[in-house]
Design a protein around this nucleic acid. Structure first.
Lengths: 337, 337
DNA sequence: GTGAAAGCGCTAACAG
DNA sequence: CTGTTAGCGCTTTCAC
């Protein structure tokens, strides 16, 4: 690979002149002639600035780490796009990582920051035990923005409007005439589950329907959890006519399990879920879902980390604009009169 | 962050002594006493080697880039795990990237290598137009291993055994008594589609069934492509009794479209697909699928890049062990007699 | 056994 | 306008 020195030699100028020109330094008062010579030489040699050299000198990598529990979860498609778009706009790059990595020595987050591989991070901690050592890191005031998750005392987070999302989903069922609506939620300790629960209860209360704790299942966000939720539903004394599933992946599992048990959706059971993804349109029946604004969350989170890096500011935000959006498909139907 | 200098100062030794001890250099002939002092000091200061410093000096990053068309495709879960496990075993780290990035300036691969962010790459080029400039890169003999894809003349690739995969799927239908079996394949120019087609034809030929080109659809690997394939099926003069779908995502779409048209699976149509993922067990009916060995491919590909980096060797491999594995679920049934 | 010193590629302050 | 120079954190050769 060509270095600044190579370019300088070819253009017949000094290394610093090349550096100034190629990084459009504001103080690059350079004659047009040499500028052209330098640019030409760089092109001819296919010059690319060496990452390590630049990072070492400037103590900056222009890289933001994005760490989520499961990278291949289709839900994160938009999150990544949002993060990348914002990063690109600010001259940063996004580095992806997984946090489900609980193996010893797999303290990804600490390493990325500690070794100076990234300037800051956007992290979603899973619903299980938070990665050991994360507390120390956050306390150390590193440029970390949490998404869809929380850590006691940490400032610097961006969350989706889970409450509104769950409320819209529940409201939709209420509007269809349902009164006995079960919530198939995430694990009780989960940050998002708590918020979705509030939205669910609020919709019921607004409609004058009594909230009943026995109608709240708290199993988790995977397809297997959704299947388990359906079985719990079947075991109830009185079967609900509708269910709000707090996650689209769980809803996919719930739907499959319903077919297996001969429950017809939406005739016997209306199903609506929080989160949309390509899978939701390809179930049968296609799932009515509340689309959450992952793209905006990605952009906002990255913007937040960069602000923290460059100005020191740190805030907690909730994405309310655009608002969560109900997408009616065919898994919900009016309550049979 | 603490530097070597900080640790040296605290331990009362020279920087080079610290460097030798902390990187277990073979020539680290150090007295046990100083070794202990150094290790203690490093621990106290929470020393972490600076990535840029090390990379700059050694001209090595110990990072392998893994670039696939769509990171959130659930199919890639195992691929990433395989790549990461092998990388960890060889003291490397994996950096994830997307290649669907056709925006101008978005030549991810060239940048990662050219700027020295990675030592080598594992790349799957999509089925569309190969990224501009990839040819130059490959010609430049960079340490790049292609997976599930090909580039004219390039040596250095790892592929799944697509032919066997498609053959097993087709064979399964033949064994069930089906004779008129359609192949819903990827785009004709696609590397994998060609190979799967061969396997499909081979199974038919082996069973003494004539190959009929009009029974081969070539639409692509997305759910939408699968839906389109189903509609094509319906438009055929004579409806087949079974279909081999070359990709699980397409199969999910095909299944949903079938329900929408009142086609019963497997009664009216048996469906088997190539590739397995969590979605395949959560459709209705659950999809009979051929599990391909993504984990092994991930490991092998990373091993290949590292071998290339460290020894210069470069080969083309096909993952035949473990072999593709038929997983029978409920989307296939015997041909009605 | 241990330390001094050079240099990887780059930026920026300073000199001319 | 342009060149010289120091130094970021690290590894490694060489000298003691």
């Amino acid at each position: 690979m060509a270095t600044l020195g190579d370019v300088a030699a070819r253009a017949g100028v000094s290394i610093s002149a090349v550096s100034r020109v190629l990084s459009n330094h504001p103080s690059a008062r350079v004659s047009e002639a040499t500028r052209v010579r330098i640019v030409d030489a760089a092109r001819d040699l296919q010059y690319r600035p060496n990452f390590a050299g630049r990072a070492l000198k400037s103590a900056r990598t222009q890289v933001i780490g994005l760490v989520v529990p499961d990278l291949t979860n289709a839900l994160f498609t938009e999150l990544m796009h949002g993060a990348e778009d914002e990063a690109r706009a600010c001259d940063y790059t996004v580095l992806l990582g997984r946090s489900d990595d609980v193996r010893p020595g797999g303290e990804v987050i600490e390493r990325l920051i500690g070794e100076g591989r990234v300037d800051g991070m956007v992290v979603q901690v899973g619903d299980g035990v938070p990665p050991a050592g994360l507390g120390d890191l956050l306390a150390s005031n590193a440029p970390i923005v949490l998404i869809n998750s929380a850590y006691p005392g940490h400032v610097g987070s961006v969350a989706l409007d889970d409450e509104t999302g769950a409320r819209l989903a529940t409201q939709h069922l209420v509007d269809l005439g349902h009164r006995d609506i079960v919530l198939a939620n995430g694990l009780p300790r989960s940050f998002t589950a708590k918020r979705r629960r509030v939205g669910y209860q609020r919709a019921l209360t607004d409609a004058g329907i009594a909230v009943d704790r026995t109608r709240e299942l708290r199993l988790g966000y995977t397809a297997a959890n959704g299947r388990a939720a359906l079985r719990r539903l079947l075991a109830l004394e009185v079967r609900p006519s509708a269910v709000v599933v707090a996650n689209v992946n769980a809803a996919v599992g719930l739907l499959a399990e319903a077919r297996a048990h001969g429950i017809r959706v939406p005739d016997d059971l209306s199903v609506v879920c929080v989160h949309d993804s390509w899978t939701a349109e390809n179930t049968w029946p296609p799932l009515t879902a509340v689309k959450m604004q992952f793209y905006a969350m990605g952009r906002t989170a990255v913007r937040g980390v960069i602000a923290r890096i460059e100005t020191g500011a740190m805030v907690d935000e909730v994405i309310t604009d655009p608002a969560p959006e109900l997408i009616v498909r065919e898994s919900t139907a009016p309550y049979p009169s």
